[in-house]
Amino acid sequence: MQILVDADACPGAVKAVVKAETVKIGLQPLFICSNAHFSRREEHAQMIYVDRHPQAVDLAIANRVNPGDIVVTGDYGLAALVLGKGARAISHRGKLYTADKLPELLLQRHILAKVRKSGGRHRGPAKLSKEDLERFKANFCALLCSESGC
């Protein structure tokens, strides 16, 4: 089992939870981000940097994911690819992506893209709250246990 993290937009607090929980079970997460988001080396994590192309991180994750892996991402399209490959996906806010919820999420993404393309604006995501982080930790730990058999 691998833990792959879409690290471009992943909050630092979420990265910290991923590292702390994976160390407990002897795993090293894989953080994938574009070189536009280059940062210091993450301890207890493997880093992969890809080109600045808009979908480069998603493609790198999709090419590496296997059944039983866990992917941390806020991207609905990537979550759909991951689920199609037999892996699990969780958002930075702790929402577990499921096949029955993705069509609605992808439609929402499509509508917002049309609004932006026509010159409209919409609110971005709210700041990560303490409740979001607690939900992420609880659901991420549950995923780890279910996939690793702890």
Rank of each mutant, 00 (worst) to 15 (best):
R116F: 03
G77I: 05
H53S: 09
A20F: 06
D100Q: 12
Y49S: 12
R116C: 08
G84V: 07
F31W: 05
K85N: 05
V50N: 07
S91C: 11
R88M: 08
I32S: 03
A80M: 02
I70L: 09
Y49Q: 14
S34L: 06
F38D: 09
L78R: 00
H92C: 12
F38M: 15
T98P: 00
R116M: 07
L105I: 00
I32W: 00
V65A: 03
E21M: 12
L83A: 09
N63W: 05
N35C: 15
Q46G: 13
V71E: 03
G26E: 11
M47I: 14
V23G: 10
R116H: 10
A80V: 01
K101H: 10
K117S: 12
E104Y: 11
E43M: 13
F31D: 04
A56Y: 03
K114H: 08
K117Q: 10
D51E: 15
V23S: 14
G74Y: 00
T22A: 12
D69R: 04
V71S: 04
H53T: 10
A87E: 01
V65W: 00
D75G: 05
A99E: 04
R64N: 14
V71T: 06
E42Q: 13
L81P: 00
G86M: 11
L30P: 05
L81T: 02
I48Y: 03
N35K: 12
Q55C: 07
G94R: 01
L78W: 00
Q46W: 08
A60S: 12
D51H: 14
N66M: 07
R109Q: 11
A36C: 13
L59K: 14
H110Q: 15
T98L: 03
R93M: 06
G68M: 07
E104R: 13
I61A: 10
S39M: 10
A89H: 00
A87G: 05
H44D: 14
N63G: 14
R88G: 01
E43C: 15
L102G: 03
H44L: 07
D58V: 01
P67Q: 08
D100L: 09
D58T: 02
H44T: 11
Q108W: 02
R52P: 07
G74D: 01
H92W: 04
A113P: 01
D51I: 14
K101R: 14
V71N: 03
T22H: 02
Y49I: 13
T73H: 04
G86L: 10
N63H: 12
N66Y: 10
V23I: 15
N66W: 04
E42C: 10
G74V: 01
K117R: 15
E42R: 12
G74W: 00
R52G: 14
L30V: 15
